[in-house]
Structures are given as C-alpha cells and as structure tokens.
Design a protein around this nucleic acid. Structure first.
Length: 586
RNA sequence: GGCCCUGUAGCUCAAUGGACAGAGCACUGGUCUUCUAAACCAGCUAUGCGGGUUCGAUUCCCGCCGGGGCCGCCA
C-alpha cells in the first residue's frame, strides 16, 4: 500500500533523527499518514511533528512543532534523494501549524495506470485480514413473509461488506440463519389454514385472531394447492396444533424459496443457510445449556432456568428454559454462536436491524461466557428504512417488499441507493430519483462512466488500435501534457490509487457505504478526464504516444470502476440502454 | 423510566481529532454538425443550543432542546 510506504519513510526519518539526538527525548507518537483535504497540500500529510511537540511539552521540554517539522522534512528529502525505492516522492513541504506534506512525482503516478491494469481483479486488494476466518451473518429473516425493504438493508450491507472484507484479506463466510418451526411458524400455519380454506371455497370461519395476512399469502395458498393438493387436504384434517405446525412448515418452505429468489435477483449471495432446527436435531441446543451449566453461568429460580449474561455486562439475565421446560429462542442463539466458534470462526459479525438493539448485550455476553473476547462477536446495527415516492395501493399488506423495489428500479440502482448511507442513519429511499434514467441518478452515473470507456475502446478497435497496443506503454509521457490536461490525468490516477485505502477503511470500520462515495468520486474524476483529454475525438490531432497513453489511463480507470462496481454488487455494463433499466414498465 | 441511532446547504446525506466542512438532488445562468448531450462548465446556500478536553472539535466528554427506534419466561 502506497500510504504504508509513505509512513515507512516518515517512521525511518523520525527514528534516525531521534538517534542523532535532534528530536526531543520522549516516546515518539504513532505515525499517522492522512490524505489532505486539498490536493494543493500534497498527496499525503502527517501530523507527527505536532504530536511530537505536544508529547515533549507534556514532558516539560520545549518544542516548536514547525521547527520539528522542518527537521523531519529535511531528513525525508535527504532519504528520498538517496533511496531508489523512495523516488515516488517529488516534494516535501511544511505547512500550517506543523503538517509535513508529501507530494508524489507525476511520472510515477502516471506509470501506476499500467499497474492497475496488471493487477486485474486483485486491484484494490489489501491484506489487513491476513486470512482471519470471519462469519458474517445477515438478513436471517424467518420465512413467515416476503423480504421487506428493511431486510434489504441488512442484505446489501452484509453482502457488500463481505465482498470488501474479502478484498481486504479476510476469509469471509456469508450466512443466513432461519427458523422454519416453532411458535411463529405455527402462527403462519394458522393463517395459511385460513387462506387454504378460502382458496378451496370453504368459507372464512377459521380466520385466526392474530397471524399473517395479505394478498401475498393468497398466492402462497394457491401454490401450495398446485404443488401438493392431496397432501394439503390431509394436513387440513389434522388436529389444530399438528395442522398449524405442518402447514406452517410447508408454507415456510415456499416462502423461504421466495426469499432466496429475491436475494438472488438482487445478487445477495450466501454461502450457508443455517436452519435453527438443526441445532435441536443434533442435540447442540441441549449441549449448549449443559455447557453454560458446566461453566457456572446457569441459575434456577422462578421455576425457570436462566443464563447469567449479566456476568458479562448484559442488562439482565436471560431465560434459556421456560417454566414449562421449553427452551427459549435465546437457547438456540447460544448454541448457534457456539456452533460458529466451533467451526473455527475467529470473528463473528451479525448485521441486525434496529428492532434487535436489545440483543447486543446478550449476544456479546454469550461470547464472553463461551470464553471469547466480547469483541469477537460484533453487532453491526443499521437504522430503519423508509421509501419515499412509492405508489400506494399495489402493496402487499402494509409492508413494502424488496421485490417491489426491484421491479421499480432493478438490482443495480437498488443496491447503490441502499449503500449510499451510513448504517447509523435512517435510509430514506428516494424512489423518484432512483427511477430516473439519466445521469441525475448517481448509481447509473457510475455505470455510465464505465460504459463510456467501453465506447471509446470500441471506436479505437475500429481504428485498428487494440489493447496490446496501449496496455504496455509508458504513460509517463503524459507528464508533458498541457497543465489543464495533466491536472485531470493526475487527478484520475490519484483517485484510482485511493481504492485500496477505501477498501481498508470500509473493512476495518465495517462501513460499506464508503464504496458508493468512492464510486461517485472516481466516476467524477473519469468524466473530467474524458472531457478534457480527448483521444479519438474528431477534429483533434493527438500525438500517437499520447493517444496510447491516454487509452491506457482510460483502461485503468475502467478497470477501477469495474472493480468498485463489483464490490458494491453492481454490473459494469459496456453500453447503457434506457430500456434495459426500465423493468417496471409493463 | 432505561437503552440505541440521530441533528451539517432548500431536500437526502458525506467528512480515520487536522489545514479553506464535501457530494447528489433542487434552483439560476451558459455550452449540442459529440470519443453516445444519459454529458460538461459556472453560481447559490450549512455544523441545533450551552459548557468542557485539545496546539486544533462536525468528530471526544457533560448538560439542554428536537427527530427516529427498542425495551417480554415472543420468535
């Protein structure tokens, strides 16, 4: 990573100066290398002089941050002059209250275009994960209804976070946990019994007080009858409890298929669908309770059996066995977490909706009880989703389904819009903007940048210029371009090289939304380059070596756009056609 | 009552404790015999209030005010 190389230079300079006694005799601060907000300040900046001065003053020594900065900057300049590996640095300047700004050499930057192309699918990859096994659980909605726009948020956060963590060197398993038995599914069975009777023309006298209702369940009833009419007739004849459980389970299977289909359409990929029921069948749920008992975190009172989660910071202890002797869902949660750790995952990430915020304490406590660090179980919580601008009247019940969004704007735009926002803020999905088939739509704008590059390569191909003609050339020739052109060429390379930092940050902070921001910035840099650096444009007379170098740069930009779109889970189209994205028009 | 998220431009939102707070949309004014105008250029406006920590606070801490959400021997 380029930033690490810069940090290495600074670290070595500080160490050398300290060795010579030219810096205050205090513990040097951690080296922080950041991107200045303005490119006029350089490519990278460090605040080490200011931190050093503060540490010195705290130790009672006199220190002037700017003077320290000058000393360090001088030493960096000397090193850059003599160490060939550091020749990427063009200038070192001291500015403001004591920042040391480093500027990269234009020729070096331009030559990175070829590196981007050579890197291919590994472009932007970093290795901060070092192969750590991570279990990333998301959606995990039980099959009692179609996936909603709320579930979608977990889906896209989880899926894209998984992609970006893989790019950051983690060994990620994407997992969906579901329960197709128990009280909720029995309730579903009650509702489905009602809808099945309706579908068979038996009247509506079995309508339950509480349950799942809406047009969607009519379609489920129809499909059940189509596939298993005879079996369904048998099931309806069972005693109420058995009937509800059996019909609920049958309906749940259909609904689970619907959810999987919705996820697949939206390119949300899971490696594992984990059935809660398997924990019962395998005896893991019982074993988990026994394990808690063995570890001394079980208490019995009020006729129930409790797990002492308060020992690890939870608000209250949690029931694992009710007074009826029935295990709670939390008992399964314990078993499930134990199962994950036993499968070798070192870190568990659970993407949960805002209604689960009360679960954080008990889940982290569970990790603690099982002998792990509380941070080995990380809860990534997202806030609520609302949709502004959706036509009313066509909806199923009072929830908006993910399928409806998909039908309106397609997978690409849906994913982009969901990922534009930080998980911590509410998501107000702007359907009107998302539906626009123009560059006002930020998601399409990024794809358009990619397609636009494809158009240029098609044209180049028509003129007999092929990839093997421009991919190997030395783009440093562009350093001689007019200032206005060079500005945009360098800005484009700089933006490209930032991807690895974006990947690192998104993976470390578990914040996939940085990718969409980056995608817009990269597309913007690309568009500027496209406008001000013509290649094949009619009426222009571009020198052949410049033409090839710009084609290479454009190819690198396209690769970066494709890589970013892929991480977000979007397609990178070679052409944009209006009709293609209008899937909602009947 | 307790807990979680949140308050930034007209709207929706960004901003690893740094330098001059950025995008998109909207709005205003320009640019079309194009490398596809599905574009480009220019302009307009913001950190809820009060303290604190810091060389430096949109960011961290405390209080107040305002939004959204959650609190079960449900699953």
């Amino acid at each position: 990573m380029i930033r690490d190389l810069i940090a290495d230079i600074i670290t070595k300079s500080v160490a050398a100066l300290r060795e010579r006694g030219e810096l205050p005799d205090v513990e040097p601060p951690a080296i922080e290398v950041t991107r200045p907000q303005y490119i006029e300040h350089g490519d990278y900046a460090t605040n080490v002089a200011m931190k050093y001065a503060a540490a010195a003053r705290a130790a009672g020594q006199k220190a002037n941050p700017r003077a320290l900065a000058e000393a360090i900057a001088n030493h960096i300049r000397e090193m850059v002059d003599v160490v060939p590996a550091y020749d990427l640095v063009a200038a070192v300047e001291v500015a403001g209250p004591g920042f040391i700004n480093l500027r990269l050499r234009a020729e070096w930057l331009l030559r990175q275009a070829r590196e981007v192309i050579v890197a291919g699918n590994s472009f932007g990859a970093v290795n901060i994960g070092r192969g750590q096994k991570v279990n990333l659980e998301f959606v995990s909605a039980n099959p009692t209804g179609p996936a909603t726009v709320g579930n979608g948020r977990g889906a896209f956060i989880g899926d894209t976070l998984g992609n970006v963590m893989r790019a950051a060197g983690y060994d990620v398993t994407k997992e969906y946990y579901f329960n197709d038995a128990g009280a909720q599914v029995a309730k579903l069975g009650g509702s489905m019994t009602y809808y099945l009777h309706l579908a068979l023309g038996h009247g509506d006298d079995v309508k339950p007080q509480e349950g799942y209702f809406g047009a969607y369940y009519e379609t489920v009833a129809d499909r059940m009858l189509q596939s298993w009419e005879i079996k369904v007739a048998d099931l309806l004849a069972l005693p109420d409890d058995e009937r509800n459980a059996a019909i609920g389970k049958t309906a749940a299977a259909l609904i689970m298929d619907d959810i999987r289909a919705t996820m697949a359409k939206l390119r949300v990929k899971f490696d594992v669908f984990f059935n809660e029921g398997s924990l019962t069948a395998s005896g893991e749920r019982e074993a988990a309770i026994e394990e808690l008992r063995r570890l001394g975190y079980i208490e019995e009172h009020d006729d129930a059996v409790w797990a002492k989660t308060t020992a690890f910071g939870d608000d209250k202890d949690r029931v694992v066995l009710r007074s009826t002797g029935e295990p709670t869902y939390f008992a399964s949660d314990v078993a499930y977490m134990r199962n994950k750790f036993e499968r070798g995952f070192q870190k568990l990430i659970l993407v949960l909706g805002p209604d689960h915020h009360g679960y954080i304490g008990r889940l982290k406590a569970t990790a603690g009880i099982l002998g792990h660090d509380l941070d080995d179980a990380h809860i990534l919580m997202y806030q609520v989703v609302t949709v502004k601008g959706l036509r009313m009247g066509k909806r199923l019940g009072n929830v908006i389904t993910l399928d409806e969004l998909y039908d309106e704007v397609g997978a690409d735009v849906t994913r982009f819009f969901y990922l534009m926002r930080s998980s911590d803020t509410q998501l107000d999905f702007d359907l009107e903007l998302a539906s626009k088939q123009s560059d006002e739509n930020p998601g399409l704008s990024v794809q358009y940048a990619h397609a636009r590059a494809s158009g240029v390569f098609r044209k180049a191909s028509e003129q007999g210029i092929r990839a093997e003609d421009y991919e190997p050339v030395d783009a440093a020739v562009l350093a001689n371009d007019p200032a206005e052109s060079l500005k945009h060429e360098l800005a484009l390379v700089r933006e490209l090289l930032r991807l690895e930092e974006v990947v690192e940050r998104a993976a470390l902070a578990l914040e996939p939304h940085h990718l969409t921001r980056y995608a817009m910035d990269l597309a913007d840099a690309y568009h500027h380059f496209y406008e001000s650096c013509p290649i094949l444009k009619a009426g222009t007379d571009i020198a052949p070596e410049v033409k090839l170098a710009r084609l290479q740069l454009m190819r690198a930009a396209q690769a970066g756009l494709a890589r970013t779109l892929t991480l977000i889970g979007m397609t990178a189209p070679d052409r944009m056609e209006r009709a293609e994205a209008i899937s909602a028009e009947e």
